[in-house]
Design a binder for these strands. Structure first.
Lengths: 189, 189
DNA sequence: CCAGGTAGGTTCAATGAACGAACCTACCCT
DNA sequence: AGGGTAGGTTCGTTCATTGAACCTACCTGG
């Protein structure tokens, strides 16, 4: 076995991550080292949908607490999420996508489209150009305007096959049409 | 907890897979249940690059044999790869992408582009429109022809930052420019 | 005919990651 | 004083991954 490049990622507390795709000279492998772990892409997807708080990720994903903490820390260390204090006393942080994280939108979009067309066949969420209301094309472009729509200008509305009364409050809050990245408002019911 | 669809995948020997993203009503989660496991997307990437044989995947990826066997079986069961007998006596099979698998190209392309622009900064492989030689744009379109290029018409050539004398014979064979999906020719050196 | 090699696996013990439950710490409200 | 909440950490159990060894046809050279 050859140790080719220093592809190891060192987190804050010195623990080495890196999933041993290091022998691959390939940007896909590099990407998967960073976002390829279990749960990671779902955390990022939720961040696009406006989820920002530890607890909201927790109830919406059904992820074990320890795993969530680990993923949030890793994504923050990678510069994909940013941890930002939104209140002192008690100290509370929220996690928001950085530019690097936001740049993952085409990937998520492509993945979701593949899943819809080849797996579920159901229309769960619809993405539209907020300016004109037109549904986006396969590459995130607006067929009416002819341009690729920037992430903050994408509006998400529930599709016809999405359940109307989900169990958890975060899913319920996500039923309201809103733009990507815009914080979700979870009522503490 | 709601059990939405029969999202469980049953393999040949009856073992239940499915990664428990089942609570998510989301096509991204569905997609990740199928291609989100460790190694899976790299196997698919190699299939796009023309790798077809068990042994070639093995040496190129450095993946444990048991894991490779498991992934190939799962991908075949999902209809993403197709197992095809290419010689009797001794019986030998090759694994090729189905239409469903080929449809993953935009996802892989987006992921690789993100990795290159936000992680490695190196140009390892370049994708061109075989008909006119123009390098593809971010969505796999040909800037010269103005159309999205079909997968079999994409030519892969090594970029300036790709190592010229890799250790394993499969990587060496992949140095030769060729189209996506076209079988790689590994010399048995 | 026999020895060695090859492709494509399976089996097994050891390790590492994920899971779920319980616990902890500030702080707030009444 | 008591209860609730957000955001964690700790811990024992279970599950997946790893690497090495082994197995089975079949083929080839001497």
């Amino acid at each position: 076995m050859i140790e080719p490049i220093s592809g190891k990622v060192v987190t804050v507390d010195g623990m080495a991550l890196g999933k041993d795709y290091a022998t691959q000279e390939c940007s896909i492998a590099s990407a998967l080292e960073v976002i390829g772990e279990r749960w990671t892409l779902l955390v990022i997807r939720d961040a696009f949908y406006g989820v920002r708080r530890y607890n909201d990720f927790l109830v919406h994903l059904g992820i074990p607490r320890a795993v969530l903490a680990s993923r949030l820390q890793a994504l923050t260390a990678q510069g994909i999420l940013e941890k930002r204090r939104y209140q002192e006393s008690p100290p509370r942080d929220e996690y928001v996508l950085t530019d690097r994280g936001t740049a993952l939108w085409p990937t998520l979009r492509a993945l979701g489209l593949w899943g819809r067309e080849h797996l579920t066949e159901r229309r769960l969420r619809i993405f539209r150009h907020a300016a004109c209301g037109t549904e986006l094309g396969p590459y995130g472009e607006c067929p009416a305007c002819g341009t690729v729509v920037a992430v903050p200008d994408v509006e998400v509305v529930p599709g016809p096959d999405l359940s109307r009364d989900p169990a958890d409050p975060v899913s319920r809050a996500l039923l309201k049409p809103k733009r990507l990245l815009q914080p979700v408002e979870v009522d503490p019911a």
